[in-house]
Design a protein around this nucleic acid. Structure first.
Length: 293
DNA sequence: GGTAGACCTGGACGC
DNA sequence: GCGTCCAGGTCTACC
C-alpha cells in the first residue's frame, strides 16, 4: 500500500538517514547504502506495521505492510512527517551556512534535517541510552529492550515495534537491570515509562510546546537521567538549536579545531559556536571536522 | 554554583 | 580464563 508525501527542496532522504546514528537503532533498519529506511511501527489502534521509506521524483514514498484505514493512513503520514522533519524551514540557516566553508556543502547535499523517532518518548529513552556508554552498548541495550518488550510484527515476528510506555512500566527495575542489561539506567527508564504511561509526563506535547527554549530545557532536565548533554540533544531533535550537546568527542574535536589540542571545557565549545545564535546547534552538528582526529 | 565520587557495562589489556 | 583498568554522562552529597 504505497503512500506519497510531497517534499520541499532542498531535501535528501539519504542525508536525513545519515544525519546521526539513529538509523542503526531498532526499530529502525537500514541497508548498507542507507538510501532506504525501514521502521516497525505500532499504531495507536494497536496494529503493528512495517514502514519502508524511500525517495522518488514525487517525494517521499511509503510502502506499508497490510491495509490501513483512513485514520491509520493519517497517523502514518504524521509519523513520517515528524521523523523526517518535513515541517522545518531551514532557508535562513542555509543563507548563513553558504558563507562558511565548513558548512557550505549543507545546501548542495540537502543536509540539516535530523532523523527522529515517531514519538518523543522513544527519542528521550534512546538518548538516555546513549549516555555514559559506548555506541556498541547503546545498540545492544536498544536491541534487548525492543526484542524483549516490543510487540512483534505479525508477518515477521523477528521484527518488533518500539515498546510502549505501558508495557515498559509493567516491568521491574530488576528485570531491566539483569535481563535487559540497562545497568544503573534501569530506574530512570522505568520512571520515564511510568510517568509517561500515567500521563503525569506528556512528552508528545514537547513537540508543539510554546515554551521558550530555556524553559523547555528546564522541563527536560527535570527528567531523571537527562542532564545537560541529553537535554541539548533532545532540543535539537525538537528543532531547537540554541544549546550544544557537548560530549567527550565534541571536546576533542573543538580542541583540535580551535585550541591546538589543549584541554578545554563546555564553555570553550559554546564560545566557538556562539556567533551562530539560534542556529548554533545545527552549525555544530554538521560542522566539517574532516581534518581533525 | 562548583566539584568529587559513585553508578554499570563491556572491551582491551596483561598475566 | 581471570583480574584490572578504562571510557562514557548523570546524580547526589558536600563545600
Amino acid at each position: 500500500m504505497p503512500l506519497t508525501l510531497p517534499i520541499a527542496p532542498p531535501f535528501s532522504l539519504a542525508s536525513i538517514i545519515r544525519s546521526h546514528g539513529w538509523y542503526q537503532l531498532l526499530p529502525f533498519q537500514c541497508g548498507e547504502d542507507a538510501t532506504r529506511l525501514s521502521y516497525t511501527s505500532r499504531l495507536s489502534s494497536g496494529k503493528v506495521i512495517l514502514l519502508e521509506i524511500s525517495q522518488s521524483d514525487e517525494g517521499v514514498t511509503l510502502d506499508v505492510s497490510g491495509r490501513l484505514t483512513q485514520t491509520e493512513q493519517h497517523e502514518v503520514n504524521d509519523q513520517v512527517r515528524w521523523m523526517l522533519g518535513l515541517e522545518q524551514d531551514l532557508s535562513s540557516f542555509y543563507d548563513l551556512a553558504d558563507k562558511e566553508p565548513k558548512l557550505r556543502r549543507m545546501r548542495t547535499h540537502s543536509q540539516g534535517r535530523i532523523l527522529r523517532s515517531p514519538t518523543f518518548f522513544e527519542d528521550v529513552l534512546k538518548t538516555m541510552l546513549t549516555t555514559n556508554t559506548t555506541w556498541g552498548g547503546t545498540k545492544r541495550m536498544l536491541q534487548n529492550l525492543v526484542e524483549q518488550f516490543g510487540e512483534p510484527l505479525p508477518a515477521e515476528p523477528a521484527r518488533h515495534a518500539f515498546p510502549t510506555p505501558h508495557r515498559l512500566s509493567a516491568s521491574t527495575e530488576a528485570e531491566l537491570r539483569s535481563v535487559t542489561r540497562l545497568g544503573y539506567r534501569s530506574p530512570y527508564i522505568l520512571e520515564l515509562a511510568q510517568h509517561t504511561a500515567s500521563a503525569e509526563l506528556d512528552l508528545e506535547s514537547f513537540k508543539t510546546s510554546q515554551l521558550d527554549t530555556p524553559d523547555l530545557r528546564k522541563e527536560l532536565l527535570s527528567i531523571k537521567g537527562i542532564g545537560a548533554y541529553a537535554a541539548a540533544n533532545l532540543l535539537m531533535l525538537l528543532g531547537r538549536y540554541d544549546y550544544l550537546p557537548v560530549d567527550s568527542w565534541a571536546l576533542k574535536m573543538v580542541s583540535l579545531e580551535w585550541y591546538q589540542g589543549a584541554a578545554i571545557g563546555v564553555k570553550e565549545v559554546e564560545q566557538a559556536f556562539e556567533r551562530w545564535g539560534k542556529w548554533k546547534g545545527l552549525a555544530y552538528w554538521f560542522w566539517n571536522w574532516e581534518n581533525q582526529g
